[in-house]
Design a protein around this nucleic acid. Structure first.
Length: 422
RNA sequence: GUGGGCGUAGCUCAAUUGGUUAGAGCGAAGGACUGUGGAUCCUUAGGUUGGGGGUUCAAAUCCCCUCGCUCACCCCA
């Protein structure tokens, strides 16, 4: 085989597309029900947007971006995440002037150059949610509740919400100091990469599975929160309780993107492997300002569609069946085909999905094909029927068939379908 | 980027452990039924055994390289 989908990418074939449509459909319905509006941003951006937004030392920026120069020599990057572009658009189009807060969502592919694994691809789709313009803790709870609700509605029920606070510019530095003070005596016990992290970004050590033992008794961020962060975090927990969202406090939970402040959360699915987060996010109160906008608090979340699909499969969730054909034309001979071809459009104009094949198949083959396509009706026309301006209408569920006049065909079929034969 | 496992028809898997012509089920096409689907039976098509090199009288099988898939680390959705 000469060409293949490139490493880390996948074709979504018709059988699977129905799952995607199912997820998209439910997501759109639920998000709009919560008052969220869709936004679509370009798939690539200026490289610096991500470097500044996500953070230069993060893995995403330092080794996972698809960056290229265009013909004018501009450095562009295929978006590795959706928050930075949305924030850019928010500032660029002054979305703050349309009332506050603004509730947005998006759905689209992201790109990261990583080694593919269960639940991890190089092109993957995210459903993202961003609320800009409010620091109220109820928003944090609203988004977590909404994503939980969506995941549950899709059919997942082995979920767990984990939350933590990563503090702010005031309290985080104090915590980092304490963490470094605690870890330094154990320097020799840290794994290679954590040794480097200690001075650069000590909080990421908490994410390391190798150095797990050390962190068990390490100081935790929530004990160092400043009054504002503490109040906020207490508020989030209170609102989650009010919405009856059960959550687990994970004092070691941190995020891999630098823009997060205060609340952060993950929703994991217990049926998944190592990559078990189906949704994650948090507050990013400093990002709008970082990009040159007015100080604007914000909260966001994103869900990995492929992971949701894997989780749905593992749980054996039955996805509603895909589209189905209403009418299949089984015509015999080219004389008939020429005469009848235009009828097909009349049906389609009435919203009746119709298939007509020009190539000569045996009647048996045509019916087999109609059956495979799960067509509701088959219209059979040969010379005998055409000479009398008739057609045979076959009901594929009951197997019954009757003759009807060609001129009345469209109306008869459309009435039958309307009566619930669909 | 590192490590483990695995690459055989479209799909799921066989091939007596190195033995000559690589098989089966599902799927596809056709037929039994010359103008009637799904069930049954029959027939047919479909393979450079991922690719390249090597060892051997002989390689799907052993060795090396390479590509890919997969799982884990790392990281993250």
């Amino acid at each position: 085989m000469e060409f293949k989908a490139v490493r880390g990418t996948k074709d979504i074939l018709p059988d699977t597309v129905k799952v995607w449509q199912y997820i998209e459909g439910k997501a759109k319905k639920i998000l709009e029900c919560y008052g969220y509006q869709e936004i679509r941003t370009p798939i690539f951006e200026e490289t610096n947007l991500f470097v500044r937004g996500i953070g230069e030392t993060t893995d995403i920026v330092s080794k996972e971006m698809y960056t290229f120069l265009d013909k004018k020599g501009r450095s562009l990057t295929l978006r590795p995440e959706g928050t930075a572009p949305v924030v850019r658009a928010y500032i660029e189009h002054r979305l703050d002037t349309r009332g506050s807060p603004i509730r947005l969502y998006y759905f689209g592919p992201m790109f990261r150059y990583e080694r593919p694994q269960a639940g991890r691809q190089r092109q993957f789709w995210q459903l993202g949610i961003e609320v800009l313009g409010t620091s109220h803790p109820s928003i944090d709870a609203e988004v977590i509740d909404m994503t939980m609700y969506l995941l549950q509605e899709l059919g997942l029920n082995e979920l767990e919400v984990q939350i933590n606070s990563v503090g702010c510019g005031v309290c985080r530095p104090r915590y980092k100091e304490a963490l470094i003070r605690y870890l330094s005596p154990f320097f020799k016990d840290l794994c290679k990469s954590c040794k480097e992290k200690l001075s650069r970004n000590p909080m990421r050590i908490l994410d390391c599975k190798v150095c797990f033992d050390l962190k068990i008794s390490s100081p935790v961020m929530i004990e160092f929160l400043c009054d504002r962060c503490k109040d906020h975090f207490e508020g989030v927990k209170e609102y989650l309780d009010m919405l009856e969202v059960t959550f687990i406090l994970k004092p070691h939970l941190v995020r891999g993107l630098d823009y997060y402040t205060n609340t952060c959360f993950e929703i994991i699915d217990k049926n998944l492997g190592a990559q078990d987060a189906v949704c994650a996010g948090g507050r990013y109160d400093g990002l709008v300002e970082e990009f040159g906008g007015k100080p604007t608090p914000a909260f966001g979340a994103s869900a990995g569609i492929e992971r949701i699909i894997v989780a749905l499969e593992k749980q054996g969730v039955d996805v509603p069946s895909s589209t189905k054909v209403d009418v299949y034309f089984a015509t015999i001979g080219s004389r008939v085909k020429k005469k009848v071809f235009s009828l097909v459009k009349d049906l389609r104009k009435k919203d009746i999905s119709t298939i007509f094949e020009w190539n000569d198949k045996s009647l048996k083959a045509s019916l087999r094909e109609a059956n495979r396509l799960r067509s509701r009706f088959v219209v059979i026309i040969g010379d005998t029927e055409l000479n009398r301006n008739q057609a045979i209408l076959k009901d594929m569920e009951t197997g019954e068939q009757k003759e009807i006049s060609l001129s009345g065909l469209v109306n008869v079929i459309s009435n039958l379908l309307r009566r619930g034969c669909k």
